[in-house]
Design a protein around this nucleic acid. Structure first.
Lengths: 218, 218
DNA sequence: ATATAAAGTTAGATAAGCCTAACAAAATAA
DNA sequence: TTATTTTGTTAGGCTTATCTAACTTTATAT
């Protein structure tokens, strides 16, 4: 069985090499930065994960998950998202509070627990941030979605998910009046720096390009 | 904050020095045996816990919890029992399955999680094994109860809790036809080895003294 | 009252996961 | 195409929690 640390490395690799991230490989430094460890530490773990055949990796080369590594990473993601849903739906946690606790809960080992939790929650398809919850087989629907920053001026769209799950970002999102399924209209965009004006329920706000890049819409 | 390991040592010390165990102190070897580690390992941890003022301990002396240590131990017990209740009441876990998973869940850190979980469960007083769940202040009702082995022949009694929480014991308990609140009549007892015959719902069984010592009744 | 047994302690080792400092390779820019 | 910057690796150390083996203290039994 994998240690919590190993699970965290696999999960980070999964996120860094997913469709959402638009690339299929990553490097030691990027991985280290994601996990808040030094490159030397990440390097040690890469050797270990390669040894266990969970990643493709050669010295000085790029890193990607093997089928086995991806399967295990998805299982962690599945647990994370189910727990987030539990906290949000059943325990009155807010959008920005669920992530941190789910980071701990995702490492609990008990197949029956996850099975029953999923059943108890009514086999949810999406977590509170709008992300797809992989099913028990590790399959996850590919979502067609773009970021708010890619929407044309004048176009209405709907928020389906957020990219960043940090409390600070989510609190900001709420402050602008946004939530899952919010309808957004792009009023204008600055050519210079991508800053845009948006309208949500009649309320207008100015948001940065960085902000808009972290909002997924359809 | 305490490590999982430290929490486990405190919990073990709590159980070994509780009213139920009929003593207020324990030793290195007993503690080590409970936690399935070697005495040398337990000894190291005792020094560390003393340093943190969580236990009373002097070289070659007996061990007991300080007020601070007891408070933290009870918090772990509280979490353990709330999670057991969750698994049993909400996720269809059986009597003998809850303990193992709760051993993992009890170490999740999130005050809000426990608060909300307790509320969600309807502020339960007892866990699935009949043990009292400490409240948020760390208070726990002292239960007056004796073991089945102490019941006089001919006396009827009611199962209120079990001492051993292992799956093997609990499965045996179920096999004999027992569960929480089961009514038991002591039919006879062997003077020689304490083996007793009991009757549960009209069904008679022979049980060992060791078995009877692990059943709490009123 | 002393010998033996039981309980407890110490020293030194190991593995996981992290670090810093020094170095090597690869990518980029002049 | 060479110099510089970025990226990645190695070597050696630290901490936590574990172990074994040897030793010491306390308790028990004759």
């Amino acid at each position: 069985m994998l240690s919590q640390t190993e699970e965290n490395y696999l999960k980070a690799l999964f996120h860094l090499t997913s469709e959402t991230a638009n690339k299929s490989e990553t490097g030691t430094n990027e991985l280290a930065a994601t996990l808040n460890v030094k490159p030397a530490t990440a390097n040690d773990m890469l050797k270990k994960l390669k040894e266990k055949k969970l990643i493709h990796y050669e010295k000085y080369g790029k890193v990607s998950l093997t089928a086995s590594g991806k399967k295990q990473a998805i299982e962690v993601v599945r647990k994370h998202r189910l727990w987030e849903t539990f906290l949000y739906d059943k325990l009155e946690f807010s959008w920005d509070e669920v992530h941190e606790v789910a980071e701990q809960l995702e490492h609990i080992y008990s197949p029956k627990l996850i099975e029953q939790l999923e059943k108890f929650l009514g086999y949810p398809e999406f977590d509170p941030h709008g992300d797809v919850i992989p099913n028990a087989k590790g399959e996850l629907k590919l979502q067609v979605r773009k970021t708010l920053s890619q929407v044309a001026v004048g176009k209405p769209c709907k928020l389906v998910a957020v990219k960043d799950n940090s409390a600070s970002f989510l609190q900001y999102v709420v402050k602008v009046g946004l939530g899952l399924s919010s309808k957004i209209k792009v009023v204008s965009r600055q050519e210079f720096d991508g800053t845009m004006e948006i309208e949500v329920n009649g309320k207008r706000s100015i948001v940065s390009q960085k902000f808009a890049e972290n909002i997924f819409v359809v």
